[in-house]
Amino acid sequence: MYTQALNTAETGDHGLEDAGKAAQFQARIDAEERIEPNDWMPAAYRKTLTRQISQHAHSEIVGMLPEGNWITRAPTLRRKAALLAKVQDECGHGLYLYAAAETLGTSREELVDAMLAGKAKYSSIFNYPTLTWADIGTIGWLVDGAAIMNQIPLCRCSYGPYARAMIRVCKEESFHQRQGYEIMLTLCRGSDEQKAMAQDALNRWWWPVLMMFGPPDATSQHSDTSTRWKIKRFSNDELRQKFVDATVPQAQYLGLTIPDPGMTQDADGHWRYSEIDWTEFKQVLAGNGPCNRDRMAARRKAHDEGAWVREAAAAYAAKRAQRQTAQAAE
């Protein structure tokens, strides 16, 4: 999972770098070549990608928490296994992305420390609570659906390791999305109580999901550089509109109502949504979402309580290496 909202580029230090190399670099990007870890790259490109990929990784890991909240309560054994496998996939995405970020020269430990210290962002959508089983369906359907909209273009990102990671991640996310939609379909074909549960979840998640694409283009900063570097290929509003157009018919098929009474379809077939409450977005981003504190506390607790285990593993590995060296010397 990932949000476009985190797609902001560093700018500023090109003047300090070799103009010739920078021109060559840009020419490669313009020719749709992939930049690889050992290639020369502007410091700002490295910094932008390190931030974006690591924040994407943090999002996958924090994203395990709201869904993990239902693993122990999934309503059937099949759903339990599917949800556990899904959350495990998110963890795999996180690991894979940390590895991609490490190719740019920052260690996973440093990246994780920055997140735990509150210095690095993760997707705001995970600061909302999962209250009912329908939230699990809705997250798969909408949150993963929004993530896919954003990640498909990232499969063509100019940085090779990130682009390749995205290809694999997208395959799994689209499976998750179908799984989520299938949960919703089952609820909507079920009892009145189940259908109400589905509608309630849609009501709560709809607007936060639209916010996942980031601020409107008019106010979005830095996207020019990211676009020039072919990290970002579509604007926030373009992707948001694509998502809404794809999702409205899906909601109709479920028999659910999008909680936007002002929504209309224009002559070109686009579904025009009402104004988004950006005050809420800013508040959640600033740490005031319903679960910001809980999410950070859970990640810090896992990290702190796991410290002795990681220390033990390191101590054992060191002892073993020492014994092997001693044996070899005999």
């Binding site: 993990g68 495990q88 996180g94 690991l95 796991g306 990681r310």
Partner: peptide, 8 residues
Amino acid sequence: CGHAPMLE
């Protein structure tokens, strides 16, 4: 799940 000492 989500609370282990390391991602692995």
